[in-house]
Each structure stands twice: as structure tokens, then as C-alpha cells.
Amino acid sequence: MTRGRILVVAALIAAVALVGIYAAAGGASYEPVKVQNPCKPRPPAETSGGLEGVAEEITLSALDGAACRLGVTRERLARALASTSAREKFAKEFHIDDERLAKAIRAGLVRAVTDAEERGKIPGVFAGPLRSLVEDIPLEEGIKLIQGGKDLFSSAESFLGPLGDLLNEFLP
């Protein structure tokens, strides 16, 4: 075998070996974390428990419900609700006005309360008033509720009056 042929064969072996080793080591199998369809049921989130945990579960569920209605991902909607400028950018990008956003958030919150009730996270006696509270909630208030889920119960407490004091007692 001539030196030229030896060189070509050696180069071929080196090239194939490198590509093969890198592919076998996982270079060809990368996939980004898949973002789940918000319209499909999601297993209950890992939350901190108590009032805060239930509030968080409702927040995440409400995000799913609103995102499903708007035809966007939960992740995109969460970022859009983080600030006014992010919301304006989102509205421009997806052609979604405030009225449509408000409707979606209300629907998301209602679905979230119902889901929490069905899972036994909220006693039925509180689920009804909570649903009434969020059904007509103005956009800014709805966003605030999703941003700081705990406020949902503060609002409920004031809405329910003295009964609100019992809320913490009944929450699992």
C-alpha cells in the first residue's frame, strides 16, 4: 500500500471513528424539554402544600386553562403576564386584545377552581363563592391573582366575610 493510500485510509478511519463515538455518546439524540399542550390534563404539580400549595395549584391550572383558550403555551402566557411590557408584546404577537385575555383568564380561573374542588383540594362550600368571585373579575385583578396565587384566598376571605376565617381550617 502506498503512503498516499495509507493516509486516505487513516483519515477515513479517524473521521468515521470520531463521528461514531460522538453519536454514540448522545450527540445525535438531543431533544429540548417538550412543552405540554395546556388543553391536556396535567398531573398535579409538586407544590409546597397548605394554603400556598393549593393557591399555586390553582394558579398553574388557571394558566393552563387560559392558555388553552388562547391557543398558546402555558409557558408563553406565564411570561406575558409577568410585566405590562411583556403583556403588550404578547398582545401584538398573537393579536389578542385585553377583552379576549380577560375572558380567557376568567375561564382559566373558573376551570382551576372546579379542578381543585374535584380533586378535593377545596371544600365545595368555598368553591361556589370562589367561582363567583373569579367569573366577573376585571383583567388587572385576574392577572394579579395569577401572579400571586395567595391573593386569591385573601380576596375570597374578604368576600366571604367571617366564613373566610374558616378557610384555612378546611383546606387540606
Partner: peptide, 25 residues
């Protein structure tokens, strides 16, 4: 999207999550 998903599904307090989402945004 993956990053936001990681944050939303993490066991961190909601207010911390929202703060992070805002900063990321």
C-alpha cells in the same frame, strides 16, 4: 419555553417563581 416550564413545575414558592419569570422576561 423549557426554562419557563422548569420554573413553573419546580417546588419553589409561587411568589419566587413569578419573580423569576418576570426577571427572565
Amino acid at each position: 419555553n423549557s426554562g419557563t416550564s422548569v420554573i413553573l413545575d419546580s417546588p419553589v414558592r409561587p411568589l419566587v417563581k413569578i419573580g423569576l419569570a418576570e426577571k427572565i422576561s
